[in-house]
Structure formats: structure tokens, C-alpha cells
Design a protein around this nucleic acid. Sequence first.
DNA 1: ACCGCCGGGTGCC
DNA 2: ACCGCCGGGTGCC
Length: 830
Amino acid sequence: ALLLKIRLQLLIYGQNIQYINPHRSFLFAPDQEESLAQFIDSALADSSALAEEALDSAVLLGNLRGNVVGLRYYTGVVSKNEMVALQREPRNAHDSNAIRVNNINGDQVGHLRRQLAAALAFILDNKLARIEGLVPYKVNNKFTMPVQLSFWAPEAQRAAVLSHLQQHGLNLAPPTQGAGVWRARAGPSYRAPSHQPVHMTAEQLKSEFDKIFEDIKEDNKTAEMEPAPAVRTALLPHQKQALAWMVTRENNWELPPFWELRGGLYHNLLTNFTQSQRPDSVHGGILADDMGLVTIWGARGGGGGGVELNGPSADLEQFEQHMDPGVQLRRCLYYGPNRPRDPDFLSQQHVVLTTYTTLTTEHGVKGVSPLQAVLWLRVVLDEGHTIRNPNTRQTRAALALKAQRRWLLTGTPIQNSLQDLWSLVSFLKLKPFTERQWWHRTIQRPVSLGDEQGLRRLQGLLRNITLRRTKNSQVRGRPVVTLPRRTLCLQHISLCEEERQIYQAIMDEGRSTISRYLREDSMMTHYADVFAILVRLRQLCFHYYLPTNSSPAPPTTPDGTPEELRAKLVRKMKMVLSCGVDEECAICLDSLRLPVITHCAHVFCRLCICQVIQQTNARCPMCRAEVRAGQLVECSPGETDSTPAESTRPAWVSSSKVDALMLSLIEIRRQDPNIKSLVVSQFTAFLSLIEIPLRAEGFSFVRFDGSMSRSRRAKTVSSFQSCSPASPTILLLSLRAGGEGLTLTAASRVFLMDPAWNPAAEDQCFDRCHRLGQTRDVIITKFIVKDSVEENMIKIQHRKRDLAIGAFAAKSHSEVTKARVDEIRTLIDL
DNA sequence: ACCGCCGGGTGCC
DNA sequence: ACCGCCGGGTGCC
């Protein structure tokens, strides 16, 4: 629906302004189907060494002076203090060691001198280090130019790099102080800059990041604009502001960020690249609006909602609701097997709606896809962060679209790290960031090294290209939207005597197992075991019924061959994950996406571990065992909802937590039967369990979880959101189901049955009902079992909130594993 | 002179 | 390249 809003405004705007051809708009609806292929075929676009992941932990080893030769044969020009790129040319007919030098524009400047290339080719080919070039000064010489080469590598590879260089008689000059960060105005030569970079603490970094989006005071973003008369829906002030801002952006002919005119030439302040051609202005940007989709519905007095789950056809329907029926719009859905594949037909439409899956499917197939063939007036990517991973086919397909104006709509432009931002910026065709290395050298690395200037650049960039509106945003001292109050209460639960005994028995057993692993320093190799213990304890806080078909796991005995043990652990991991529990990936530190289990029984996002595997001598980040792509085991949480069959289900027995929930629900119904509630758990099997007492008490409820089909989800949401008296009052919701788009504003009470690892996941869940369109005060109840693993999880959550910014600073794997071990100790009070 | 030296031709990888 | 390097021409003072 956010998509709809934009769509409306842009389109109408397009019709208002003469020189903009209203034809050929092109819009995206998000979809959740993701094909494995996207992850498997990841590109290796950058040829100058080191996987992206290794890049983040790279340190500056030192510098080397060299020469670029053969200038007269090429057109690429370079001026003082300008960055250059090195590119291996293994198939060069004259020298298999050849290393090509390109300027920022990608034009060839020359080659590294043969002898130097002979030494460096090995380093690049074996990805021992990343080598970056900088031409320190301009020479009036048509044949050669000097280049300073900076060597970046993970600490572990330092020795290998240095010794290899030594063999060729080369020694690195130690990095000058502060030279770890490239500074735009570094002075005439490569002497140490006069200003040392200011390194910030994690605390400072955090507050700086908060400031990045605090751009609301800027005047150019508070102007309002009325939509065209063809829009029937009244817009809220912040929507009018967004409209005005977007119009300004589309008519923006200013130089893009970091470019200025100098003596008739265009100069980039970050890379010092100069060109005579004017760089393209940015006609578009990022709408980072976490108020989500309800904005329009809110304006129309509620109703609707969750629309995007119905897929693009419903989007189009909703879209038209907001339009004056007198306005004739040519629109089509580009979706499904019978989509109209004629590019000419598509060009004649005002609006074409499609899905990421359709786009991705067509991308890269033989012949030109109709979507790729058209030059669109606009491309709008809804849920734009879906292209944050640059290695997916989906992202590449989106980047390949031809359009005059480009927009990204997303509530979360940065999710894990700054890396997320690169594809978005690249999609906007901001030079020179369309190439990853320039982004990395000028923004990402300086920021992750805590350099203040890097942060300023990032702020400047984001300020230029994004409009940020959050629920908390203020315009001229007034909140943009006023939401009803939201109250969070922790309700502590004491287990009854019988439950406590069971819990304590499992806890004692688990604690002794884990402390043995601790003593043996083998926590990480037995991670599946440890993980299973912790999950079991968390489940026991809910109910002693075991939702998976596991027997109460006997502690893994040291008998059996190592191979048997390993297979057992992998099975155990798979089983535990299948009950829908929210686990984190130790590489991206976020919730698992497409989890896979390694040979050594550790679980990661498929994409994360695949990136690790691309390195030479890839090791498991958890236990340092060898990892191979062929040995990864698939497992999708929630795929096996182990709702017990009617016959095998034991006679119903309640639990302390279930009792507490039921008491609350009954009390709410007694006070006001119209109040609706969300009951949220990570364990989908427990949602099934709750159905029993709900039925017994005559509650009308529906259920929403990740295993449901798109159309069933849509039906569930619309029946829950409906105001009809017969509509259900309770929604059983699995914590991570549904995208950010899911709107459940009919509910004003939330019961969170079990705490999650990641407090952000909880917040996101609460936001599904506490958002625009909510008319009642929202009360959230978190059930926490006293003296249990749950209480300790809350402690860890607090710690994590404080460290939320840590994601931006690169962390070594040893730090990550140590943090894990500490977490586990905290959890079971060891 | 199986040298030195001169000066022209020449030039990435 | 206002260099280095190559190879031919040349050769007392």
C-alpha cells in the first residue's frame, strides 16, 4: 500500500507536468518467494581480490610505489590524488601476469610495469590481499605515471603477503599514521595528512547514526504539495511533504552528491576524478518511511490493510480506489503465465505492475525480457531493501532495468550493515558508487573504521537521496503522526511445582553437559547439542509438551564414530530448527535467512556461509572445521509444522503460561468483546497447542504463520481486520511470519508468549498493530517465566540493544564465537 | 676492437 | 622518453 501511495502521487504528478511522459511507469510489488538460484549463482564482479566478507576485516598492511606504463595507448586520464582500480588480465597475450589500471570511470589508463605485475599477480590471483591504487601527483609525461599501491588483507594473511613480496625484492612502506582511511583532501603528496582521522567509540558511532536520518529540519523536505485533482484520497501532511520532495527530486538538475564544477570540469570530491561530461543528476531517491502501508488507509478512515499480501492484482484494485474514476489510466499486470509479453504494449501503459519473482525469472534468459527492453519513465521498487544483497539475481535484475527515474520504498534502508546500502545507492545510479569498490573505499570502510569524515560523507549522501519519516519524526516541532499510546508490560510467570521439577531436571542435565563442553573448550563443536538444550528449556517455559518428535534428548554420549556423532548433530540441529525457533546467523548476526547446516553441525544463512566458502581454505566461523558447499544441509524453519495428529495428541493439559494467557483473554472479552488480540510465539507448534483452550472457551480465532500460502494469508488477515461482528478476535501469529507489510491494526492487545533473541524482531512484530490506522491504545504483554532461561534472555536483549551499533564495526569471528559462549553461559547461569 | 664511445631508433602488457 | 635500452657504426691525439 505504501507502493500505492507513491504510485498515485507520481503518476498524477506525471500527468501534471508537461515534459514528463506519463507513459511507461513501472512498478514493483514485493513478493516473498525467493528462489535458491538467486543465492547459488552469486557473481564475482570485482576482480581485484578478496571476498567482500574478508574485506571488512582487512587491515592496511602498507604501501608500495609503482608505475603505470603504456599511457599513450589508452584514453583513461587520471589527475592528482585520484584513485585508480587494478584489474588482473590473466589472458593478456603479452604477459599472463598483466595487471590493468583503470580510472574511476572504468577507462583503461595503462598497465602496471611488467616486473611489478609479476610480483603482484600471485597476490591478486590467490586473493591474499586487496591492492588499491592512488596516483599521488600529476606528471606531464605521456608514457608513465606513478601509483601508490595500498595492500589490504586480513591480519592472518599479512605474513604470506609480505614474504611473497620479499621474494620479489619488494618491501612495503609501513602505513603512515591515519592513512588507513583515505581522505579526499589529503594534500599534494602522500605524506601523512595534517588532520588525524578521528576515531569514534561505539557509543559515538551510534549517536552519529541516529543523526543521519535526523534531517527533518531541512526546509526542502517540509514543503507540502497537493496531489492532482484526480486523486480522490485526501493526503496527510507528511504525505504531501513526501510528494513535494519527490517532485523536487524528479526535477532535480543539480550535480549529484560529491560533485562540483571546477574550471569547466566536473570534479568528484571523494575520488578526485575529473571529467568534462556533466555527471547525471539523481532523479529519484529512497523513501525510508517506516509508517508502512497504512498511510493511505488511515487517511480514508481505516479499513483494508495487508493488501500487498494479495499480490499485485489486489494492489492495482486498491490503487484504483484512490483515483477519480473519470481518469482513464492504461494499466496492466505483468504477472503470471499469461502476462502480456509485448514490449510495445508495455510501453503504452501508464502503469505496469509486476513482482520481483517475475523480473528475476525473466532476467538473464535468452532473448531480451520485455521488462528489460522498455525504457521506463519510472521504476519504483516497493520494499526496496529486498535488493540489499548485491549477489542475488533479483538485485542484478533490478539494477539492469532502464529507467529515467528510480525510487526505492523501504522502511529499513540499513538492516545489517552499511553494506546493505550499496545496492540501493547503485540502483539510483549514483556515480561513482555504481561500482562496489568506490563505495567501499570512500564510504563503507572509512565508516566501519570509525572515521568521522566517512560518517559525514554518509550523512551527506543520505540526506541528499532519502526522505526519512518514522513514527517518531517531527516536523516543525510536531510529530508527523500521532499514534495511540503503546504500553509494554512484562508479566512474570511462576511455574507450578510439577513444571518446575521437569524444568529443573532438564536444566541440571543441560547445565552439566554444557559445563563439560566449557571445560573441554568444545562448546562450538557441540553447538547443535547446546542449541537443542537451550531450545528445550525455552519450550519448557511454555509447556512441557514436546512439539518435535524428539525424545527428551539423551545427552550425546561420546561413543560412536566421529562420523556418527556428526550425523547425529546435524540431525539434531535440523530437528530443532524445524520447530520454528528464531536463531541467529553467526556471520551476519541477524536472523537466519534460508538456513543451512554445515557438515560440522552449525547453522548459517545460506548466502553468508557461501560467501565464506568462496575464500581459499574456508573454515567454519564457529569451529574452524572445513566447510564445503556440497555438504550443506537444507532446512527451512517452519516447514515441518509438527502439529500432532488428533489421535496421537495427549489429553489436554494446560500450563502456567497458557493459564495466564487464557485468564487475560477471558478478562479482556468480559470487559470489551470488541477488543482483538495477537497471540505471538516463535514456536508454531505451541500456537497449535493454544488452539485447544481457545476452542474450549468459545473464542473465535484465526492463525497466521510462515507455512501458509499467500492467498490463505491474505484471507486470514482480511477476516481478522474486518469489523464485522462475526470476525475473529484472536490471531495466533508466528513471530517472524509476514513481511514488514503485514498490518494487524484491528488488534490492540499483543501477547508475546516467548522472548526472542533479537529485540528488533519483537519490535517489528509489535509494529504490526501499533502503526497508522490504530485507534486504540496498544498494550503488549510479554510473558516471562521467573528463574528461567527466559529471564536471562531478557538480560541479553538489554545488552544487545546497547550494542546495536556494533553491527557497523567489523567483528572478528573469534569475537563472535566468544560472545556466543558468553551468551550461553549467561543463559544457564554458568 | 673479444673493447669503449657515439648517436639514432625506439618505447606497455 | 629532457629517460633507459638496443644494436650498428666506429676507433689516436
